[in-house]
Amino acid sequence: MGLYEDAAYVDAVRDEVAMIKAEDKVAEEERQKQERLDYIRSVVETMQGAQSLQELKKIHDHAVRRLTARKDDTAVRRIAKELKDLSAKFEEESAA
């Protein structure tokens, strides 16, 4: 099926295994939460630096695939909101 070739899937499984093996589960959960927030922040910053609508959509699609593999619906909604806001900016620029 190709799941083992998908980096997002492998990362999600790696995090699940780390949580199971962790001696301090609270610390591991906090580490994973911080990693998630850092990733979302980096995606938003990258999206804000996009030079075209096409580039913006590619960044969005890549992030959504990764977040969907991790079953992170909240982050997917956050990235979608950023896409909507920034798409409007590109549409205004192209209309001018």
Rank of each mutant, 00 (worst) to 15 (best):
D6T: 11
A7N: 02
A7M: 09
A8F: 06
A8L: 10
A8W: 03
A8Y: 04
Y9S: 12
Y9D: 14
Y9K: 13
V10Q: 06
V10D: 03
V10A: 15
D11H: 14
D11Q: 10
A12L: 13
A12V: 14
A12E: 08
R14M: 03
D15T: 00
E16C: 10
A18I: 01
A18G: 11
M19A: 05
I20L: 07
I20W: 03
A22W: 00
E23D: 11
D24R: 15
D24N: 15
K25A: 01
V26M: 05
V26D: 02
E28I: 09
E28C: 12
E28F: 03
E28D: 15
E28W: 11
E29P: 11
E30S: 14
E30L: 07
R31A: 07
R31N: 08
Q32M: 02
Q32G: 00
Q32N: 02
Q32R: 01
K33E: 09
K33D: 13
E35D: 06
E35G: 14
E35S: 10
R36V: 02
R36C: 05
L37A: 13
D38R: 11
D38K: 12
R41D: 08
R41Y: 05
R41I: 08
S42R: 05
S42N: 03
S42M: 15
S42G: 14
V43Y: 06
V44P: 03
E45R: 15
T46S: 12
T46K: 00
M47S: 01
M47A: 12
M47Y: 04
G49T: 01
A50W: 00
A50N: 01
Q51D: 01
Q51K: 14
Q51E: 13
S52N: 10
L53F: 06
L53V: 10
Q54P: 04
E55T: 06
E55I: 04
K57D: 13
K58R: 11
K58A: 14
I59N: 03
H60S: 04
H62I: 14
A63V: 00
A63Y: 06
V64L: 01
V64G: 04
V64D: 05
R65C: 10
R66N: 10
R66D: 00
R66E: 05
R66T: 02
L67V: 06
T68V: 08
A69H: 05
A69M: 13
K71D: 04
D72V: 00
T74P: 07
T74W: 09
T74D: 09
T74V: 12
A75H: 06
A75L: 05
A75M: 03
A75F: 04
V76C: 11
V76N: 04
V76Q: 01
V76E: 00
R78P: 00
A80S: 09
A80L: 07
E82A: 12
E82I: 09
L83I: 01
